[in-house]
Simulated assay, not measured.
Amino acid sequence: MEKMKLKLLYSDLKPELELIEKELEQAVDSESLLLNDASLHLLQAGGKRIRPVFVLLAGKFGEYDIELLKRVAVPLELIHMASLVHDDVIDDSEIRRGRPTVKSEWNNSVAMYTGDFILARALERITEIESPRIHDILSKTLIEVCRGEIIQIEHKYRLDQSLRDYLRRIKRKTALLISSSCELGALVSGTDEKTAAHLRRFGYFIGMSFQIIDDILDFTASDQELGKPAGSDFIQGNITLPILYARQNPEIYQMLRDNLDLDISDEKRLEIVRTIRTSSAVDEAKRMSERYLEKALKELDYLPKGSATKTMRKIAFFIGKRKF
């Protein structure tokens, strides 16, 4: 339901997004039946397609050309998809978006090579873009995404990590790819540098808010709404913002410490989820998300008034206030 509401906000982009969806299908096509099935399994699970949407919206601030914009939107979404497959192996996730993950449907080896294949297809598509600057931004973004994945592994089960550790991790994990989507959509369309910079910063701030809300929902939404068990982040050892705030309570800290890196029962999982949900941690995390949301909206104030700015504002509000 929430995903449907979000899609209504950019329904005028439906023809372009359908074209990008077909391009994604073509991009993951392979002579290997196994690779083809595994890649399509992930693609057909759907998603919000936030990154292509922001590429298209940013393109409206310059010379809007879907043929150019899709050359940016497709590789960015492929990079995101590849990171999801690898994430599921690292986190040993069985379910994503209510469906079995690639690693669950096949195995870890198939999942890792599927992620590598999708990433290789992204790099192949990037060569269609002739601008060295766009290549440079995309390659640096990809490097940072990979660094974020490694840092997430290093930080697993570390209850003593700092707020700064967390923010730097989600910057690389989520915010930079959304930021690059906005910036590259603008640049490929020939917008001026100032506009591109405001769009880049908007993408970064909304990306930070987006990930914090995701981390909150892991404790406040139900298993059914999430399409996976609530509290999965904690079970997988990912220490998110609600946990960082909740650990300040000595009793909660001890409970988290006692159950970290254990094969806990469903009953214990739900008890931990309820404890975090009813603590002050959720409201504190929401305030952090709202600060990033406010910064994102402020960047939009510097952009020309029009339908693209209006839609970006609506999406930003939706992201910051979504329930699951």
Rank of each mutant, 00 (worst) to 15 (best):
L43T: 04
I79L: 15
L68D: 07
Y10A: 10
G185M: 02
L163R: 06
Q26A: 14
S131W: 03
Q254V: 10
T195R: 01
L293W: 07
R257I: 12
N259S: 14
L13W: 04
Q161G: 14
L42P: 06
F234M: 08
T220R: 10
K298W: 05
A281V: 13
L13P: 08
C182W: 03
V53D: 04
G203D: 04
L159F: 13
I153G: 00
E154L: 15
I95D: 06
E21Y: 02
G59E: 02
R147C: 15
I134Q: 12
R172L: 11
V110C: 08
I319Q: 06
R247A: 12
L13V: 12
V74N: 08
D214E: 01
N36I: 03
K286F: 06
R51E: 03
R201Q: 15
S109W: 06
L35H: 10
E105K: 10
K171H: 14
R51Y: 02
T101L: 07
H198I: 04
A308S: 11
D87S: 05
I151R: 02
R168C: 07
V72L: 05
I216P: 00
G227C: 08
L159A: 13
Q236K: 07
M288E: 13
I118A: 00
I95W: 08
M4C: 09
H80S: 14
I20C: 10
S232L: 15
R269V: 13
L40P: 01
L8N: 14
S162M: 14
L260D: 12
E299H: 00
I150W: 04
R71C: 15
V102D: 00
R164H: 08
F202Y: 09
Q211Y: 05
I212P: 00
E144A: 15
P250T: 10
T174A: 13
F317N: 13
A308D: 00
K7T: 09
N259L: 12
P229T: 01
A58Q: 04
I66R: 02
E183I: 09
E63Q: 10
L42V: 09
L76G: 07
S181V: 09
K314I: 10
D301W: 05
K323H: 13
F61K: 02
D165H: 14
V53P: 05
L40F: 09
S93C: 08
Y245I: 06
E271C: 12
P75S: 11
H135S: 15
S179V: 06
D160S: 11
D258N: 05
Q248S: 14
V28L: 03
G190M: 00
